[in-house]
Nucleic acid binder design. Structure first.
Lengths: 219, 219
DNA sequence: CATAGTATAATTGTATACAATTATGCGAAG
DNA sequence: CTTCGCATAATTGTATACAATTATACTATG
């Protein structure tokens, strides 16, 4: 389920995607195959493949015979994604409570343990990485490739926002406490509780974002 | 939001996708770039692009330097998708109740009117097409490109199952009645009712599939 | 001076060529 | 007879070449 495709074309895809999500390529910017290829030291072929894939992901809009343009991420996009996640993460946690393996539970426990450490230290970079791993593991534990696919995409999509929210030490600590409670529910295989907690986790995240103010989160 | 890309590469993508979803390309079958290119009368380049996109959609699994393989659709995939849809279609209808335009409402009314006609005649092909249009319009009416994206993909993914269920004249009629009720709620801009009805619509579909038996639906 | 038309350049779309990797088949050794 | 090794073929990965389309800039004309 966690595919690692180490061909050149795949690398190009990931680089361009990160550049868009990180804001290096700004909204409506035209992505020229030749230029990007030269930047990355590859020919147009892998760049084209990457752009076509990014179009499917909705990060790029391709106008035939004209060009590929960066699709901007709006406040509404973020809001919508969190509202969708609120519904789906609950279902995902419910499934995970039923199907999670011992290894995955151990993995989750290690993640929240480490995150607790880094939250106290204020290591944002590591916190984001651990948040990625936590949710990735949770999505995988659902045992549904569709659930994994959808939620991974969305979670990845809002990485920039998450980076900002986790900069707050309080929110980082609170978020991890919520993660811990979810892990506890999963350990007990309490599906209803896991669902409720996971859904609530997204809700708290949104409430936190409301406090911070949306203009700070997405320019 | 409804992109129509009429380049060659895009056509190849759609053809291969239909062939997979229609079962023409069977599970685990190896899709060779040269062979497919010859079948469709194009070079390897557009085929490669299409296969890369299909991998992102989860319909194809690519092993670097080895090949592209059709990912089979299992009973569990279908079940998972319907359970996910049960949650999301509700939210989608809720949003649609708030943001739907007059034109979109007219479109929906025309669709259910036509579907009523074809249901009585037992024209399965047309019914599937109208079911596609109905949901497509509903997804678009939500005003959320993320919602549109996710639900369109899933809806498209289960087209084979829908084709079978709509073969039953009773189910076709019932399904359309449910569509009508959703349209009524949208007309009243009753978000809660629209949500409940849309969610219920997916539930009835699943119940109907249970009656038919899953072994008939997906081999 | 503004503008339409046109030649030129730039960019995308597709096909092909070459490189790298993997699959296949055959013969020799045990 | 099986299996290992190696040569050959097939296939994917990448780069380049050519075709088609679109953007640009310059000139001629009113």
């Amino acid at each position: 389920m966690g595919e690692d495709n180490h061909s050149l074309g795949s690398r190009v895809f990931h680089i361009i995607r990160e550049n868009i999500l990180a804001g290096k390529y700004t909204a409506n910017e035209e992505l020229k195959e030749k230029t990007i290829g030269e930047e990355l030291g590859v020919s147009r072929t892998p760049v084209r493949e990457a752009l076509r894939q990014l179009e499917l992901e909705g990060l790029v809009s391709i106008i035939p015979n004209k060009g590929a343009y960066v699709v901007g991420i709006t406040k509404k996009d973020i809001r919508d994604i969190y509202e969708i996640r609120e519904r789906l993460e609950g279902l995902c946690a419910k499934w995970a409570a039923l199907y999670i393996t011992k290894e995955q539970l151990d993995e989750l426990e290690e993640i929240v343990f480490l995150a607790d450490f880094h939250a106290k230290k204020g290591n944002v970079e590591q916190l984001v990485e651990l948040d990625n791993k936590f949710h990735e593991t949770l999505y995988r534990a659902s045992g549904s490739k569709e659930m994994y696919h959808v939620l991974s995409d969305f979670h990845h999509y809002v990485q920039r926002v998450r980076k900002i929210t986790l900069t707050s030490e309080k929110r980082a600590a609170d978020s991890n406490k919520e993660h811990m409670m979810i892990v506890e529910a999963l350990k007990e295989h309490d599906a209803d509780m896991a669902e409720k907690l996971a859904s609530q986790h997204i809700l708290s995240t949104v409430e936190n974002m409301d406090r911070i103010g949306w203009d700070v989160l997405v320019s």
